[in-house]
């Protein structure tokens, strides 16, 4: 049961940037700046929630911070056609440094900040559900938002023209442009959606079940999301499967710690899983090709 609940929590944190990243990838942009955007959002969620003692303001601040990173990324990648790695890594470094700098300059602390004035994102208690209590009750609002978004996006992916245009922008942007639809606009839209989702994920990280900002607290979650997105290659179902698998491995690792396994060893789990999955995928498609 503990594994189930912690899987859901981890999964939520990865799922949001995965959903966003999948859109941008479908539109033809691999988003490398997820880690940085998430970190910025986490910091600004704390800031907003601290100043106004309202988690709504925390969420709003988080989304705006994520938007800032994403729009810079979009401008460089779409308008200037810059190398995504240079600009993505630069933004990740920017986020890491800027949050530490702001911790020092705004809160006057090094490394981490917490305060009772910060309001947490509430959990939803659905009343007494009997045996389902442990399965459904007291999950964060963000968890439910995420589940809603997954379903909604699945619909958008297959049943709307927006889904069609996204893929067209990624596969052959000239074809879309000559059909009178601006691929640049579509790409910006996908980045904006991503910014909102990553903003929520960042807020969940710092004020979801904590009231705390730690330096570099995103701790590679953005990268796991990027890996899942690359692994799924724009395909909705495969991306979801990869995310769930990675989220589960992450949570499994954490819960195995309570059985005495070293935490650093168990933290390797999701990465080992991704590596194994990648190698399997590669070798399999190679074999298929060999067979002819």
């Amino acid at each position: 049961m503990y594994i189930y609940r912690s899987t859901i929590a981890t999964l939520t944190m990865i799922m949001l940037p995965v959903l966003g990243g999948m859109w941008t990838l479908q539109a033809g942009i691999l988003n490398i700046s997820q880690e940085g955007a998430m970190l910025m959002a986490a910091f600004f969620a704390v800031l907003g929630s601290y100043i106004f003692s309202s988690f709504w303001m925390g969420l709003l601040f988080a989304i705006l911070a994520s938007l800032m990173i994403n729009i810079i990324y979009a401008f460089f990648c779409i308008n200037l056609r810059a190398n995504i790695w240079v600009i993505g890594m630069a933004l990740n470094i920017l986020a890491s440094s800027l949050t530490i700098l702001l911790l020092k300059s705004v809160f006057g602390v090094k490394g981490s900040f917490t305060s009772s004035k910060i309001q947490q994102i509430p959990s939803l208690h659905l009343g007494n559900l009997g045996p389902l209590n442990a399965f459904l009750n007291d999950f964060s609002l963000v968890v439910w938002i995420t589940i809603g978004l997954v379903l909604f996006f699945k619909y958008v992916d297959t049943h709307t023209t927006f889904g069609l245009h996204l893929k067209a922008a990624g596969k052959n942007w000239q074809a879309l442009d000559t059909a009178g639809i601006s691929s640049t606009l579509i790409r910006y839209e996908s980045i904006l959606i991503n910014a909102v989702l990553v903003g929520i994920a960042g807020a969940y990280l710092s004020i979801g079940y904590l009231k705390l900002f730690n330096k570099d607290m995103s701790a590679g979650r953005g990268w796991i999301a990027v890996a899942a997105v690359i692994f799924g290659d724009g395909n909705f179902t495969w991306t979801l499967i990869a995310t769930i698998a990675f989220g589960f491995m992450d949570a499994l690792g954490i819960s195995l710690q309570s059985y005495g396994l070293n935490s650093n060893l168990t933290l390797m789990f999701p990465y080992l899983a991704i590596t194994a999955a990648l190698i399997y995928q590669g070798v399999r498609s190679y074999r298929l090709k060999e067979k002819g």
Partner: peptide, 12 residues
């Protein structure tokens, strides 16, 4: 139909 898709309500 790309770019000029027929729609029903909001769906393609």
């Amino acid at each position: 139909v790309l770019g000029f898709e027929p729609k029903r309500n909001l769906s393609f």
